[in-house]
């Protein structure tokens, strides 16, 4: 069945979907209501037209500038630098942060041939130069590449006079020491704070 094989082969290119899952999805779609399959196909086809990058912060949005960048209620003195657009959604979910965002579009990794010039760092500096920004919070992952990017931003941005901070790493809130993985625990020890 060529149509089925082609569909399954395309599905397996998606992250987290192996051949077995792809087959399950394909058979489910064969059995399902035609209107549902039609609606799904239309959404997939239209997704890239409906969602664009915000021309200011680089996150995903249906309107440009995005609701965060255009909201008068946000704190314009703080910019949170993240690796990818979906990180904005994650941080917004915490409802803790009321500042603005800047999506870097990757992390510095010489192994993968990604240098600072491949990231949206110049546009971040341009935003800072426009004035009013007092702090940049670097929210990259606590990995080798995330650390390198954070160190790079710190060195570069401190020359602009803004304060550069980094998200704390360590024990999860409500977590139990017993269940913390060792890397997290080791990081927590390195970053321990004075009481």
């Amino acid at each position: 069945m060529k149509a089925l094989e082609e569909f399954v082969s395309l599905l397996t290119r998606l992250p987290g979907i192996g051949r077995k899952s792809a087959l399950r999805v394909a058979y489910h779609l064969l059995r399902t209501d035609r209107a549902f399959a039609q609606a799904l196909a239309e959404r997939i086809a239209g997704l890239q037209d409906a969602i664009v990058f915000c021309s200011i912060c680089g996150s995903y949005t249906e309107t440009d500038p995005c609701p965060v960048c255009s909201s008068p209620a946000r704190d314009r003195s703080v910019i949170c630098a993240v690796e990818q657009p979906q990180d904005v959604v994650t941080i917004e979910g915490s409802r803790e942060y009321r500042g603005l965002y800047h999506v870097l579009g990757g992390l510095i990794s010489p192994l993968d041939g990604v240098g600072p010039e491949d990231l949206k760092i110049q546009s971040l500096i341009a935003r800072i130069r426009e004035g009013g920004v007092a702090e940049v919070v670097v929210a990259t992952n606590p990995t080798v590449e995330g650390d390198t990017t954070a160190l790079y931003l710190k060195r570069l941005l401190e020359a602009t006079g803004v304060s550069v901070t980094r998200l704390a790493t360590g024990m999860p809130v409500g977590g139990d020491l017993e269940y913390a993985d060792r890397l997290t625990l080791a990081r927590s020890f390195r970053g321990r704070t004075k009481l």
Binding site: I108, P110, G113, T148, Y152, R155
Partner: peptide, 10 residues
């Protein structure tokens, strides 16, 4: 790659 800008950080 001769990335001197990154070597200090690494």
């Amino acid at each position: 790659e001769g990335r001197f800008d990154l070597l200090d950080l690494l």
